[in-house]
């Protein structure tokens, strides 16, 4: 590892235009993926105060169901219009998220809302363990390699570098998801009620808000967002056991940096982590491993509640 003055090659890279926009583009693409992964986590935490360790499993379930169904679509009708596979991706995610979210909320979580926050972390940890093996039982351990939707869109040259159009579309998808979340929270009646629940659960109950319904809805939306992230990622990776566990810590980092429970925070957190990481990869690959935890520790050291987190009034 080099300490001290940067070697000439790296100096040159710093001033190189190609590297500069590569950092920007890669950072944006990675950030949008991070946001997709983290959005569901922050929504659930914001409303329900549950730090959902099983979020990664929802991601995995989304990825697996999308990969297997799209794979089946291509292998069973070779002549079919390949563009339908995108509808299958999204449809799969919605269906998987709805079903899994509903079953878990109604079957388990709703009996536990009175327990404290930390115990809920452990409940979701148990869920993570169970879902990890359940996914394995349903889908097997063979990796699913469903590349068609990824390679179908081709690539575009931006300057000297080629980018996969699917990755660029992912940026669009995350803007849509973020926009929708923002719109629902800020511009609809449901959103207003939700914000009331976020602000003070007890008062909201006293005002006649059906908090149980809100919780059920939020959990299902959060699960679906997790599954959607998985489904949209599935075509660009090889879906194999353990992918869920890998994204949990990432999603946590993004959400903690941005401030737990804040959509704006998740956006900023994702951009911060995404761009820093991309900078590290291009300029100092040896520190890449520490980037995420470094950013998280630094932000927490300066702003313990995260960038957009609310400081909670201390109650006596």
């Amino acid at each position: 590892m080099n300490v001290g003055a940067l070697p000439p090659a790296r100096m040159r890279r710093l001033t190189d235009m190609t590297t500069f926009y590569a950092i920007l583009m890669d950072g944006m693409i990675y950030a949008s993926w991070l946001f997709l992964v983290a959005a569901g986590l922050t929504v659930i935490y914001g409303v329900m105060r549950i730090l959902n360790m099983a979020h990664g499993s929802f991601y995995a379930i989304g990825a697996y169901s999308a990969a297997s169904l799209v794979g089946w679509y291509f292998s069973s009708n070779g002549e079919a219009n390949p563009y339908w596979s995108y509808a299958i991706l999204v449809g799969c995610a919605l269906l998987a998220g709805l079903v899994v979210g509903f079953v878990i909320e109604q079957g388990l979580l709703r009996f536990m809302y009175k327990r404290n926050e930390l115990l809920m972390v452990i409940v979701t940890y148990a869920l993570l363990l169970i879902l990890e093996d359940a996914t394995k039982l349903v889908f097997g351990v063979d990796p699913y390699f469903t590349y068609q939707p990824y390679s179908l869109l081709g690539r575009s040259m931006i300057g000297e570098l080629a980018f996969a159009n699917y990755d660029l579309a992912l940026v669009g998808a995350s803007v849509v998801v973020g926009g929708l979340c923002w719109f629902v929270l800020n511009r609809t009646h449901t959103g207003k009620v939700l914000r009331a629940v976020i602000h003070d659960r007890e008062i909201a109950v006293a005002m006649g808000v059906n908090v149980r319904l809100m919780f059920a809805g939020t959990f299902i939306v959060g699960t679906t967002l997790g599954a959607l992230a998985g489904a949209l990622t599935a075509p660009s990776i090889s879906v194999s056991p353990g992918i869920g566990v890998e994204v949990i810590v990432l999603a946590f980092a993004v959400v903690v940096v941005g401030g737990l429970g804040s959509i704006e925070g998740a956006v900023v957190g994702a951009l911060l982590v995404g761009l820093t990481r991309s900078m590290a990869v291009h300029l100092a690959p040896e520190i890449e491993l520490f980037v995420i935890y470094g950013v998280m520790s630094l932000v927490l050291a300066v702003r313990p509640q995260g960038l957009f987190g609310r400081t909670v009034a201390r109650k006596i």
């Binding site: 388990l108 452990i122 409940v123 940890y125 148990a126 869920l127 993570l128 363990l129 169970i130 990890e132 093996d133 359940a134 394995k136 039982l137």
Partner: peptide, 11 residues
């Protein structure tokens, strides 16, 4: 499925 068993015990 040993992880699942651990999870169920924990729950």
């Amino acid at each position: 499925t040993w992880q699942m068993i651990l999870g169920l015990v924990l729950l």
